Computed example of a mutant assay.
Amino acid sequence: MARNPATADDGRLTGTAVDAVVFDVFGTVVDWRTDVAGEFERVGTRVGAQADWMELTTEWRSLYPPTLLRVVSGEIPWQSLDGLHRMMLDELLAKHGLTEFSDTDRAELVQAWHRLRPWPDSPDGLSQLRETHITATLSNGSIGLLIQLARTGGLPFDTILSAELIHSYKPDPKVYLMAAEQLGVSPQRLLMTACHVEDLRAAADAGLRTAYIPRPLEWGPDRPAPAAPDWVDLTATDISDLARQLAR
């Protein structure tokens, strides 16, 4: 029987089946936890507040999925991710009675999401991947935020795509299909790459291919990454590993 050129002998997806690769950014390409917690501690110390800053950062991030779903469902109107981060931060600080933070302090903390450092493999891995495939972000972050992360982190994406372009958020299937349309490829030849299984599930349901990178620190130092689901097309240890697999 002739071999399918889209799969290796072991059935895994090969690079010939993919025209472009899009990436979740927060957690998959950049480390949000370390840098946001560091900014929380810096600003909190300055204003005289006391808290477990790492835990507070984790809780801030935990508000992210349900808040985005409220936008996708139409419960609340669309606004930029900065606006949603500020809304979530206000809710978080009120819950913990942290009244020391002024409007200026809170705006500074929201901007921390614009200054996240990449994982060590991200710049070189993206450079390797660009030799064979189109690369782009596909993030809920705003275009301006993503450009800042790419420029300061040396992240050589071919282009920046954001859910902002259609005033929605992942996991809305329209976001994934928008990426395929913008890149001029069919959904079946577009590979969504993320460390979040729920992002990949939504992408797969929209007809995209999927690659899982289980970043060990995404869920905190004491929690392992979820196991790779059996329905994902590829699993890679990092972006460099993904580039090597897709170069086959």
Rank of each mutant, 00 (worst) to 15 (best):
S142V: 06
A107N: 13
E39F: 06
Q128T: 07
S102A: 08
D105C: 09
I76V: 15
G44E: 07
F101D: 04
I76K: 06
L68N: 14
L93D: 00
L109D: 00
E100C: 03
Q50D: 13
V30L: 08
E100R: 11
L89N: 01
A107H: 05
Q50L: 13
S62H: 12
T132V: 13
K95N: 11
T135Q: 06
W119G: 02
A51Y: 06
V47H: 08
M54F: 15
W53L: 02
M87V: 14
L68F: 13
F26R: 03
D31A: 09
L56T: 01
P65C: 04
V25L: 10
H96D: 09
Y64T: 13
E39V: 08
R130P: 05
A51D: 12
T34M: 10
G83T: 08
L68K: 09
L138Q: 05
P66T: 09
L116C: 02
D103I: 07
P66H: 09
P120Y: 06
L56G: 04
D105V: 04
A136P: 04
L68M: 15
A49G: 05
Q128F: 06
S139I: 05
I134T: 15
V30A: 00
D35V: 12
S73F: 12
A49L: 02
L126S: 04
W119N: 01
T58E: 14
R106D: 03
I143F: 07
L138P: 02
I143A: 13
E100N: 10
V110A: 07
M87C: 10
H133C: 10
S142H: 03
I143N: 08
T28S: 08
K95W: 11
L126I: 11
T132M: 01
T137A: 12
L138S: 07
G83I: 06
T104K: 11
L129I: 07
D31E: 12
L129Y: 05
M87Q: 14
S102T: 15
T57S: 14
S139W: 03
N140P: 05
R115C: 11
F26E: 01
L89H: 02
E108I: 04
L129K: 01
L109S: 01
V30T: 04
R46M: 12
T67S: 11
L138N: 05
S80T: 15
